[in-house]
Structures are given as C-alpha cells and as structure tokens.
Amino acid sequence: MTIKELIEKTGWKLATPTLDTSAEIVGAYCGDLLSWVMGNGEPQQAWITVQVHANVIAVALLREFSCIIVADGANVTEEFAAKAAAEELVVLESGLPVFESAKKLVELGI
C-alpha cells in the first residue's frame, strides 16, 4: 500500500503536504528509543512514534523508512514539519495511540 492510499483509507493528517506520497509502505516499526529503531527498523517501513524532534528525522532517513506516523497526538511543530519536508520525509499524524495506529495498519493489510 502507498502512503497516499493509507491517507485515503484512514483520513490521517499529512503534515508534509508538499511531498510526494506515492512511496510504498512495507510493514511498520513502533518505538521511541532511537537505538532500538536504528537497530531493528527496515527500509520502507512506516515508523510509528511519539518522538517529535530533529533526531527522529535523521534516524528515519538513515533507516530509509517510507514515512513517520506520529501517534498519540504528540505535537508536530511547524519547525519539525518544515525540516521533514526539506529532507523529503513524509510525516503523518494518526491522532490515535500507538497500539491503535498499528492495529489500523494491520487491518489495512500493511
């Protein structure tokens, strides 16, 4: 499933509206401890987290995630969204807890 299709099916907010959303999502990783994410994430996954700061963007790019899904209403600042957009990293906001966000992905077959 592409990021675009995920947004259409969930109504989750796209915090980086200027970016292309045609990238494929292959699985997902949930976590907020960056070394665990760095050590266990896989390319093309969606990363579900409540961490919102510049280092999250660095980890996501190095790990080649397809997008970040910010869960639990963690505050996506304009600065964060702008930096992610500049680095071409798609950021979504699910507005749901981490578990509910992950469950939604499973229901949609990701």
Partner: peptide, 10 residues
C-alpha cells in the same frame, strides 16, 4: 529525546 537505550555500542 529517545537516546540512552543502552543499545548504541551493541
């Protein structure tokens, strides 16, 4: 910030 998991060197 999510560092300090003790997984860096490992």
């Amino acid at each position: 910030m999510g560092f300090g998991a003790g997984m860096g060197l490992p």
